[in-house]
């Protein structure tokens, strides 16, 4: 199946010099959730803006649903719903009017019951006649999502959707995202909360300085880049490491009460068995064992730091 979003050799440069995007190529599969991770100014919002038609392309091509975003903009934009980062809403309009406007803008016939169902899904139905200025920040964020969903899009962009929202809304929002995914909607989200990407995404793209550093399935990425750590707690402290462990990547910790061993999950042999038998032959008694896998955040920080060097 061809990708639903196909970005090829995309360059965005500014008149004053400098690149916002530098030869970016990304293929986004239909129905997947892609998390776009990157520090501020990495080019995440620029990439989304170009796909949505808000920013002009300097070079390269972008197609959505097989259509070019410049030549066939009516077809491509009708497929997309965008939830922007900022809370941009008309203060004096009501929730229902503003969501209806969005539906109309995207060329859909007015449909009161559909809009009410979207509002209900986002716990906004009782606020449908309230003006924007009466709503809390979290409620406004919900309205932006309702606007993006008002025309039943096939692709949803969520640009930093959980910045500054409470736990309840985050939970509601992920429920909506999960439901949309079940309906086959493709979701692209940018977030600073890496644990969210870790929890919800199928694939992760890391972008920095206008370049895609990697794009990979989240699980594979974790396996590929993740090192694991084994923490061995001891019954009695040891002052020095026995000579038999000199060729093993193990360190003393907690004043000799524990040992930390790093190993590679993708390696054929992890070396755990041999380490444990060496400890047993040295007469070291173990109290507990814990393993810890690097989070996406560790991987992300590692990649970005390496790139910046």
């Amino acid at each position: 199946m061809p990708p639903i979003i196909d970005v090829q050799h995309l360059i965005k440069s500014y008149a004053g010099g400098g690149f916002a995007l530098d030869d970016v190529s990304v293929e986004i599969e239909s129905g997947e959730i892609l998390a776009l991770l990157g520090p501020n100014g990495a080019g995440k919002t620029t990439l989304i803006s170009i796909i949505c038609g808000l920013t002009r392309i300097t070079e390269g091509t972008v197609s959505v649903g097989g259509f070019d975003v410049v030549k066939d903009y009516r077809k491509t934009r009708a497929l997309i719903g965008l939830v922007p980062q900022e809370l941009m809403l008309e203060p004096f309009e009501t929730v229902f009017e503003t969501v209806s406007l969005s539906r109309g803008l995207f060329g859909c016939k007015p449909n009161k019951s559909y809009i009410e169902s979207v509002l209900s899904q986002l716990s906004l139905l009782d606020k449908k006649d309230a003006q924007m200025k009466e709503l809390s920040g979290g409620m406004k964020r919900r309205v932006l999502i309702a606007k993006a969903l008002s025309h039943e899009p096939k692709i949803l962009f969520l640009d930093e959707p959980t910045a500054g929202v409470d736990v309840e809304l985050r939970r509601d929002m992920w429920n909506v995202v999960t439901e949309l995914k079940q309906r086959g909607v493709t979701i692209v989200l940018t977030t600073h909360y890496i644990e969210e990407a870790e929890e919800i995404a199928d694939r992760v793209a890391v972008i920095n300085g206008g370049k895609i550093l990697l794009i990979e399935e989240k699980d594979k990425l974790m396996k590929r880049l993740g090192t694991k750590q084994l923490r061995i707690e001891l019954q009695a402290p040891i002052t020095t490491l026995p000579d038999s462990l000199s060729d093993v990547d193990v360190q003393r910790a907690d004043d000799g009460m524990s040992l930390i061993y790093h190993y590679d999950v993708k390696a054929e042999r992890t070396g755990i068995t041999s380490l444990l038998s060496k400890l047993a032959s040295e007469g070291i008694v173990l109290r507990d064992l814990q393993t810890y896998q690097s989070s996406l955040e560790d991987i992300f920080v590692g990649l970005v730091t390496e790139e910046n060097k």
Binding site: C52, L54, L89, G107
Partner: peptide
């Protein structure tokens, strides 16, 4: 100007509208 000032202009600009 008002939608430009508020930022809500993003919507007509990203909609399938000429």
């Amino acid at each position: 100007y008002f939608p430009k000032f508020l930022g809500t202009i993003y919507e007509p600009l990203s909609a399938p509208i000429s």
